[in-house]
Amino acid sequence: MDVHQYCQERAAASGSSFYYSFVFLPQDTRRAITAFYALCRELDDVVDECHESQLALAKLDWWREEIMRFAAGAPEHPATRALLDTAQGRNAPAALLLEIVDGMAMDLEHLRYPDFKSLNLYCYRVAGVVGEVAAAIFGGARNADDRAVRRYAHELGLAFQLTNIIRDVGEDARRGRIYLPQDELARFGAREADILHGVVTPAFQALMQFQFERAAACYERAFAALPASARHAQRPGLVMAAIYRTLLNEIRRAEFPVLRARVSLTPMRKLWLASKTWLFP
């Protein structure tokens, strides 16, 4: 099996906006980030496709062992083998990869989050850490800028995850999950039962406007943190930011129809945004 072809097919089949941020990269970097993305998809699918929690936890334990095999230079899965086969990917810290697995495990343990502090830990693990590993693969920072690039990556990862949460409120509710913090539902008077049954209320609209403003602020903090010296190398993340931020604005412009519909951008619009951002980051 060609492990890089496996990862390429995995990324292309996902239909994710992330795929559009890879297409302009040099081959070596593209292979590294595609392998990392394929690994994240494998972990995500454990939670999404395995309906027995004990079996899912057992699979995540296997992945913890696989990450340690990756760190030792002897992985078994095509995604981790492909990551090891790239100069930018083989140095991905095992500790960060294990944080991502722990984030996936939180999806099996929590259907609700009492406040933003607890939700933020989940977002850090499944998105902030992903952003940090991806930013390291893209490179381009001087030593003095490393901390700023990591801050940028964490803020951007958080922004992406909050955008996903807003977009997927209805879909998650149909699975019995509500990622919106429980104390914020109470603050705005939004009823959990209404969300679970797809009932749009003024209280829900106000709650979603609050979520929009938080996500928008994360994008702004991310852009402000990115050093000018790293901007060129970090273009893939900026491409993703252009796509996701446009999606977030579209959801708001449509007045948050997320309980009953999934708002998305067309492939042509994503490609246009990707091309424009790549040429003029």
Results as ranks from 00 to 15, higher is better:
Leu180Pro: 00
Pro181Tyr: 03
Pro181Ser: 07
Glu184Val: 09
Ala186Ser: 12
Ala186Pro: 03
Ala186Glu: 04
Arg187Lys: 14
Arg187Asn: 04
Gly189Arg: 07
Gly189Cys: 05
Ala190Asp: 12
Ala190Gln: 14
Ala190Thr: 15
Glu192Ser: 13
Glu192Ile: 08
Ala193Trp: 05
Asp194Ser: 08
Ile195Ala: 06
Leu196Ser: 02
His197Glu: 14
His197Met: 02
His197Leu: 10
Gly198Lys: 15
Gly198Asp: 11
Gly198His: 08
Val199Phe: 03
Val199Asn: 06
Val199Ala: 07
Val200Gly: 02
Val200Gln: 06
Thr201Cys: 05
Pro202Glu: 04
Pro202Trp: 11
Ala203Lys: 08
Ala203Val: 00
Phe204Ser: 01
Gln205Phe: 00
Leu207Cys: 13
Leu207Thr: 08
Gln209Lys: 06
Phe210Trp: 11
Phe210Arg: 09
Gln211Glu: 15
Phe212Ala: 09
Glu213Met: 00
Arg214Thr: 13
Ala215Ser: 13
Ala215Leu: 03
Ala216Val: 01
Glu220Leu: 05
Arg221Pro: 00
Arg221Met: 08
Arg221Cys: 13
Ala222Cys: 01
Ala222Val: 04
Ala222Gln: 06
Phe223Arg: 13
Phe223Ala: 07
Ala224Glu: 14
Ala224Thr: 14
Ala224Leu: 05
Ala225Trp: 04
Ala225Arg: 04
Ala225His: 09
Leu226Asn: 07
Pro227Glu: 08
Ala228Lys: 05
Ser229Thr: 11
Ala230Trp: 06
Arg231Val: 08
Arg231Met: 10
His232Arg: 13
Ala233Cys: 11
Arg235Val: 12
Pro236Arg: 01
Pro236Ile: 10
Pro236Ser: 07
Leu238Phe: 03
Leu238Ile: 13
Val239Pro: 05
Met240Asn: 10
Ala242Val: 06
Ala242Cys: 07
Ile243His: 01
Ile243Asp: 00
Tyr244Phe: 15
Arg245Ile: 00
Thr246Asp: 02
Thr246Phe: 01
Thr246Gln: 06
Leu247Val: 08
Leu247Thr: 09
Leu248Ser: 12
Asn249Lys: 10
Asn249Thr: 08
Ile251Ser: 07
Ile251Met: 14
Ile251Val: 11
Arg252Gly: 15
Arg252Trp: 11
Ala254Val: 02
Ala254Tyr: 09
Pro257Trp: 10
Val258Trp: 10
Val258Ser: 09
Val258Glu: 09
